[in-house]
Computed example of a mutant assay.
Amino acid sequence: MPPTDPAAALTRLLDIMVRLRAPDGCPWDRVQDFASIAPYTIEEAYEVADAIARGPDFPQLLDELGDLLFQVVYHAQMAAESGHFGFAQVAETIAAKMIRRHPHVFGEAAARDAVLQNAAWEVQKEAERAARAETGTLAGIPVGLPALTRALKISRRAARVGFDWPDANQVLDKLEEEAAELRAELPAMDKARQADELGDLFFVMVNLARKLDLDPEQCLAGANAKFERRFRAVEGRLATQGLAPADTGLAAMEAEWQAVKAAEKG
């Protein structure tokens, strides 16, 4: 029978974490700090997303959610050891925040109209940033986000105060301008300049996704999946001829690629 008492299960996990970090605990766990654990936290979040994308794959999702929860427990334990806060404070802080940000659920009925206008959540977040003395339109956007996701948040904030293109067509014009600037940098082979222009190109593409009401991360994930699917099909077609990609030239692989695309379109 699976456990049915969340409090008991969580207490057991917290006790395991304390034991791992004890002087006679795991040598690897004892020497970790926030900076060394942070990459694992990010990795586990992506593995949760991957399990969801797989159907979702519920057995895998169960496992990955446990790994992600362990990361939260890990950070909370290290904070407790240094006298800052413990897991209970983490849980209480997020509970209080959710109540504060959902007045239409936990507050007066009069707040319901505000949330329907998509205002209450942002008003609360603005107030929280002000309380942390974070000022300016772009304040509080985490620097550790994936670059595409952070670019989307930055551009949304700027657009909220009117710094935005009128429509997607004008963003496409800007995209062509940035592509021309990158092309102009190719002959000089100045990697710093090329990186700068390529970054501009990426940023404009994120803005284009936003104007089209698309998620750039999901768009790129879809492109990745499409490329993988088609390239594997190319490999399969070549294999029927007794060939591998490395045995053929670009022209032959491109011909197979076009054949795969045509087959997909039916």
Results as ranks from 00 to 15, higher is better:
Ile154Cys: 01
Met78Trp: 09
Gly222Leu: 03
Glu43Asn: 06
Val48Arg: 05
Ala22Glu: 12
Gln170Tyr: 01
Val115Ala: 13
Glu134Arg: 11
Thr248Arg: 11
Leu20Ile: 04
Met189Phe: 11
Gly136Thr: 03
Ala76Pro: 00
Val206Cys: 05
Ala263Leu: 07
Pro2Arg: 12
Lys153His: 12
Ala251Gly: 09
Ala192Thr: 12
Leu61Lys: 10
Gly222Arg: 14
Asp29Lys: 05
Thr4Phe: 05
Leu138Glu: 02
Glu264Leu: 14
Arg156Cys: 09
Gly107Val: 09
Pro103Gln: 00
Leu116Asp: 14
Asn207Tyr: 00
Phe231Glu: 04
Arg229Ile: 08
Leu116Arg: 15
Leu69Phe: 11
Gly66Arg: 11
His75Pro: 03
Gly140Asn: 00
Ala35Asp: 13
Tyr46Pro: 01
Gly86Leu: 04
Leu198Arg: 02
Gly236Ser: 12
Phe58Gly: 03
Arg237Thr: 00
Glu44Cys: 07
Gln117Pro: 05
Asp113Tyr: 12
Asp213Ser: 09
Leu201Cys: 02
Glu256Asp: 06
Ala239His: 03
Ala91Arg: 14
Arg156Tyr: 05
Asp173Lys: 15
Ala209Thr: 10
Glu177Asn: 08
Leu243Pro: 00
Gly144Asn: 11
Ala209Pro: 03
Val161Cys: 03
Leu62Met: 12
Gln170His: 04
Val18Arg: 12
Glu126Asn: 13
Ala262Lys: 10
Gln117Thr: 14
Ala127Tyr: 02
Val206Asn: 01
Cys26Glu: 07
Phe70Pro: 03
Glu178Leu: 02
Arg183Met: 15
Asp215Ala: 12
Ala96Leu: 10
Phe203Tyr: 09
Arg230Gly: 05
Ala151His: 06
Tyr74Phe: 15
Ile37Pro: 04
Ile52Tyr: 02
Glu108Lys: 05
Asn224Arg: 15
Ala9Leu: 12
Ala251Cys: 05
Lys153Pro: 03
Glu128Tyr: 00
Ala195Arg: 02
Tyr46Ile: 12
Trp257Ala: 04
Arg129Tyr: 02
Ile37Asp: 04
Glu228Arg: 13
Glu197Ala: 00
Asn224His: 14
Ala209Ser: 10
Pro245Arg: 05
Arg54Val: 02
Ala223Ile: 13
Leu198Glu: 03
Leu220Tyr: 07
Ala95Ile: 06
Pro103Ser: 09
Asp57Asn: 15
Ala76Met: 02
Arg112Pro: 04
Val123Thr: 15
Leu148Asp: 06
Trp121Phe: 14
Arg160Glu: 06
Phe202Lys: 02
Met1Arg: 06
Arg183Ser: 05
Ala22Ser: 14
Thr137Leu: 11
Gly86Met: 08
Pro6Leu: 08
Met189Arg: 15
Val204Ser: 00
Gly162Trp: 05
Gly86Lys: 07
Trp257Val: 02
Leu250Lys: 09
Ser36Gly: 14
Ala259Pro: 00
Asn224Met: 15
Asp213Ile: 14
Pro56Cys: 08
Asp164Glu: 11
Leu145Trp: 00
Ile154Pro: 00
Leu214Arg: 11
Asp164Arg: 15
Ala158Arg: 10
Arg101Gln: 12
Ala158Asn: 06
Asp67Gly: 08
Ala53Trp: 05
Gln241Ser: 06
Gln89Ile: 11
Glu181Arg: 01
Ala192Phe: 10
Thr41Gln: 07
Trp257Pro: 04
Gly140Glu: 00
Ala114Met: 09
Glu92Asp: 15
Val234Leu: 01
Ala233Asp: 13
Asp213Phe: 06
Asp57Trp: 03
Thr248Gly: 02
Gln124Tyr: 05
